[in-house]
Amino acid sequence: MTAPTSATATGSGPGGGPLVIRLAGVGRTFAGPPPVTALHPSDLEIRRGEYVAVTGPSGSGKSTLLHLLGLLDTPSTGSYELDGIDTAGLGDRDRSTLRGQRIGFVFQSFHLLAHRTAEENVLLAQLYNRTPRARRRAAAREALARVGLAHRTRALPGTLSGGERQRVAIARALVNGPSLLLCDEPTGNLDSANAEAVLTRFDDLHAQGHTLVVITHDPAVAARAERSVRIGDGRLREPGRPAVDG
C-alpha cells in the first residue's frame, strides 16, 4: 500500500486557526479494468483564513482533488473532515446541504445564466434559502459590492467583460457566507488585465479572512497564494520534496 503523502505546504500560514480542511490518507481509485488510481493516499490540512494554491499539469489529479474537496465525489480510502464534520457517513442529501452551506465554487467558465442580470445570477445561489427575498436581494447586492460591481447589478453577462463575469461568479460563491472558497482555474479564460483584477479580489478576500483554495496550472496565479501544494501523478507533495512511495 502506498504510504500517505504529506502536503503540509510551504509557508506557515496563520497558525493556530481552526481547521477547515483535514484530509487523512485520502485516495481515489476508479474501477477498471484496470483500476486507475487518480489520487494516492494523501494528507492535507488547511486552516481558516489560509490562501492555498494547488498546482500541477493536466492529468495530474487536480480535478480529482477538487471533486473530493468540494464534496462532489467520495474518497476510496481515508477520511475528509470539513469544518470538523466527518463527511464519510453522510448521505447524498446531507452532503449536498453541507456543500451548499460551507463551500463556494468559482469555475473557469463562470457558469452564469445569460438571460439573468448579475444580481439575479447571485440570487440563484440562495434558491433554497428560506430567508425573506428582500434580505436575499440585499445579500446579493452586498456580495457584488465586495467584488467591485455595485454599479453593475442589473447588467446581463453579455455586457460584462470576462473579468467582470468572473467577479459575478465570485460574488455568487460568497453570498451564503461559505467556510471555503474553492476556485478551479479561475483565470483560465481571462486576458492578463482581467486576470489581474480577479487575483486582486482574491488578495482582498484573503485579507478579510476568507479561506481560499485555488486549483491552477499557472505559476503566476500560484505565486499570489501564501502556501503552495503540488500534485503530480496523483501524489500531493511539498515543493522541493519527493512524494513518499510505498
Rank of each mutant, 00 (worst) to 15 (best):
A195C: 11
G177P: 04
L23Y: 05
R230H: 15
L236H: 00
G209W: 04
P33L: 09
A207E: 14
A114F: 06
G32D: 07
L98R: 11
G49A: 12
A118H: 07
G61N: 13
H40N: 03
N189Q: 14
G27Y: 04
L174K: 06
V175R: 06
P57G: 11
A197V: 00
P178R: 05
R230D: 13
A134W: 09
L65Y: 02
R172M: 03
V54E: 00
R136G: 00
A24K: 02
L205N: 12
E142F: 09
D73Y: 08
T74F: 05
E164K: 12
I170Y: 10
A222Y: 00
P242E: 13
L112S: 08
T211Q: 06
P4H: 01
Y80A: 06
N129R: 15
R137G: 00
G13W: 00
V52L: 14
L68P: 02
L69Q: 08
T216I: 10
R227W: 06
L199T: 00
L124F: 14
S63E: 06
R48C: 03
N194F: 06
I85G: 08
R48K: 14
L68Y: 06
T77I: 06
D184H: 04
T200P: 02
P219Q: 00
R133W: 12
R201H: 10
I85S: 11
T37D: 00
R95T: 05
S12E: 15
L205K: 07
R152S: 14
P219V: 01
D83N: 13
G16T: 03
H217V: 10
L44T: 04
S228N: 13
G17W: 00
R237P: 03
A145M: 11
P239D: 14
L23M: 15
S228E: 15
R146I: 08
T77K: 07
R95S: 11
L127V: 09
A173K: 11
F105H: 10
A220N: 09
R135Q: 15
V36F: 14
R95L: 15
L156M: 14
R48A: 12
G15L: 13
A143Q: 00
T64A: 09
F110Y: 15
G246K: 02
G56F: 02
S76D: 08
S12K: 12
R241Q: 15
D92H: 09
R130H: 15
V52Q: 06
E238F: 09
E120V: 07
L65P: 04
V52N: 01
G148R: 06
P157L: 11
F110R: 07
A134K: 13
Q166P: 04
F30M: 07
E45K: 10
A225R: 06
L205E: 10
G16E: 01
I215A: 05
R227N: 09
A88H: 12
G49C: 11
R241S: 15
L123Q: 07
A243L: 01
V147N: 03
G61I: 13
L160K: 07
V26D: 01
Y128L: 14
A243V: 07
G158A: 13
H210C: 08
E238V: 15
D218N: 14
S60F: 04
F107I: 11
L23N: 00
A222S: 06
